[in-house]
Write a protein that binds this DNA or RNA. Structure first.
Length: 589
RNA sequence: CGGGGCGUAGCGUAGUGGCUAGCGCGCCUGCUUUGGGAGCAGGAGAUCGGGAGUUCGAAUCUCCCCGCCCCGACCA
């Protein structure tokens, strides 16, 4: 392959586009890899499409190597299957919907669980046919409320999604493990730095699910990693270790105090420390000694609205993402004025356990942070304006309806696996593997006969890789101030060959090199543009990011060609006679 | 959906009531130049997001609409 820049459909930009913030977006646009068509919708230009196809080929190759079989569904799908699993409704505005001329509803697939399930249902009916894994590489559509960061989060994107079908849980575990291995191999080949994080809270009893995250500052997912063991989890899935029950004896009886002008935790703590009759003998009060009770209204998928109180130590906020992860598919919103009016026993700013709980007057379900174990003593609201209760002891003076682990996760929190310290980081979700279980098989009635002749519901897994997103993730992780730096296997070419100078000699010599390299299978991006100054060519080569840059120019007269490594900047002069072999060796390495 | 910002040529931008809307990049023609985004000369390219209004006069002021970007909410 020889791509000639004299005729390539490519225009690089000298300035950053004004609407691009993150590096991958900026550089992919500047380098002429992609162009925006609509919000979250992009066109791949020739160089970009080469990169995209390389990534796609690696993904497909690893899937095939794992023994999975490729199929291809339509992107446009009928409504009925999604009606049966309730996702026509559950997906809400995120679903792109359309009608045909007869008024029948269609959708642009956001993901294809239903279609795969129905396909298998139509073909298979025996346990002997399983296990089965089929996959597709398909354009997906999600009408995101806010597409952002260019290719990283579009409304149209390409995803590899596979689905496993097994008769039992052990089979599902094996299919899951095969995917995990295949994903590791895939992302390693893509040159991505990644971590595998657990994506679902074990405490909530969900099925096994892990995310593959590519760490970068611009990532949308927050995750924690342990500094002393290999624990890693999405913040939504972090499990808080509950401390041991505390000793109650010696803690004074609970007492209500006048605490005027203490609308915030901070003012409350200051007041408590400032008053001799309230101050602690051993140490000052801190925000962590207070119990903050936050009220939410939880909207179910059926539209029902149920209040929920969450008690967390006053030094932490309730993390809404963690809350939603626990509540899903319910949606939580903080209490509004109208909600307080509807619940007169709840005094805003002074809500305490006394007014909460299913057995209380308010009847509001009350769940507390795992740190609120039996014997812990708290300062908290007394359910009257201007009053707080001190030395309220969990287990002795109040009890909650249950535990909910939704407080914000912080740097330095304890690792649930080993007790070490957690660090927080951000990453791009590039893959997700998920033991779905029987949800879809049940909804769509996918059953097979087992060896005893009984009908059993098939158990499924679903596994995704963001193919187009992976292109951006690679760009995000692999660039410098001058431009992109592609890993060789995804690069649009193996070498970027530049001819410089005014004379014909350099161009003729470069032409010969290009032809010879092409003949031995080296992919060449050849800057054969006449009348373009060397500076422009060098800058373009660095922007475009082909890993090896070969320059035919100044030292050709002495019989040398320059070979430059894009990533390190190292350059060496190689005799013309050796250049093909040296490049072949670099490309093969 | 809430908050903030922005919309002027392919790209980046100047222009806050006044004359023919300015500049840089890119593009076209010619000459020169050729190891780090070259020089000179000439040129093409803009319904100033759209509509309505105020005014002798609107890119500029007012109102409505549309679109985009960022933060948040949302997002198996």
């Amino acid at each position: 392959m020889i791509l000639r820049m004299s005729t390539l459909f490519l225009r690089t930009l000298r300035d950053d586009p004004a609407d691009a913030e993150v590096p991958s977006h900026r550089l992919l646009v500047r380098g002429g890899y992609v162009r925006r068509v609509a919000p979250g919708v992009f066109t791949w230009l020739p160089l970009g499409f080469l990169v995209y196809r390389n990534v796609e080929a690696i993904v497909r190759n690893e899937m095939d190597a794992a023994g999975f079989q490729e199929v291809h569904f339509p992107a446009m799908l009928p409504r009925e299957p999604y009606e049966q699993t309730n996702r026509w409704t559950e997906y809400g505005d995120t679903l792109f919907r359309l009608k045909d001329r007869k008024g029948a509803d269609y959708l642009l697939g956001p993901t294809h669980e239903e279609m795969f399930t129905l396909l298998v249902k139509g073909e298979y009916s025996s346990y002997k046919d399983l296990p089965l894994v089929i996959y597709q590489i398909q354009t997906k559509f999600r009408d995101e409320a806010r597409p952002r960061a260019g290719i990283l989060r579009g409304r149209e994107f390409v995803m590899k999604d596979s689905y496993s079908f097994d008769v039992d849980d052990d089979g599902l575990a094996r299919s899951y493990a095969r995917h995990r291995d295949a994903y590791i191999a895939t992302f390693e080949r893509l040159g991505l730095d990644f971590v595998i994080v657990s994506a679902m809270s074990g405490a909530m009893g969900g099925s096994a699910s892990e995310e593959f995250l590519a760490p970068t500052e611009v990532g949308e997912d927050s995750f924690v990693r342990c500094t002393s063991c290999d624990y890693a989890a999405n913040v939504e899935a972090v499990v808080t270790t509950a401390p041991a029950d505390a000793e109650v004896s010696g803690v004074p009886a609970a007492h209500v105090e006048q605490t005027p002008d203490t609308p915030t935790i901070e003012t409350l703590v200051d007041l408590a420390n400032g008053r001799d009759d309230l101050a602690r003998a051993d140490r000052p009060w801190t925000a962590a000694d207070t119990l903050k009770n936050v009220l939410f209204m939880v909207t179910g998928t059926d539209g029902s609205r149920t209040p929920l109180a969450v008690g967390v130590p006053g030094d932490r906020e309730v993390d809404l993402k963690r809350l939603e992860a626990v509540l899903q598919p319910g949606i939580a919103t903080v209490f509004e004025e109208a909600d307080f009016v509807a619940h007169p026993s709840l005094v805003k700013g002074y809500i305490g356990p006394g007014a909460l709980g299913e057995a209380s007057a308010s009847g509001v379900r009350y769940l507390v942070d795992p740190r609120v174990v039996s014997g812990t003593r708290w300062i908290t609201g007394a359910n009257e304006s201007g009053r707080h209760v001190f030395d309220l002891v969990a287990g002795r003076d109040f009890s909650a309806d249950g535990v909910i682990d939704v407080a914000e996760v912080r740097e330095g929190d304890a690792c649930p696996a080993c007790g070490g310290q957690l660090t927080l980081a951000r990453g791009i979700e590039i893959g997700h593997i998920f033991q779905l279980g029987r949800k879809y098989a049940e909804a769509l009635d996918l059953k097979v006969l087992d060896e005893t002749g009984r009908l059993v519901t098939v158990t499924m897994g679903s596994y995704g890789i963001g193919v187009s997103r992976a292109v951006a993730a690679i760009a995000e992780q692999s660039h410098d101030e001058r431009g992109l730096i592609w890993p060789r296997e995804v690069s649009p070419a193996d070498i970027h060959l530049i001819a410089t100078g005014k004379s014909d000699e350099a161009f003729e010599a470069a032409e010969v090199i290009a032809t010879q390299l092409d003949a031995v299978g080296v992919r060449v991006l050849f800057d054969d543009r006449r009348g373009v100054s060397p500076g422009v060519k060098f800058n373009d080569s660095e922007l475009l990011g082909v890993p090896t840059i070969v320059v035919v120019g100044k030292r050709l007269a002495e019989g040398f060609i320059e070979i430059k490594d894009r990533r390190t900047g190292d350059r060496e002069d190689v005799p013309v006679a050796d250049v093909i072999e040296v490049i072949r060796a670099i490309v093969a390495a």
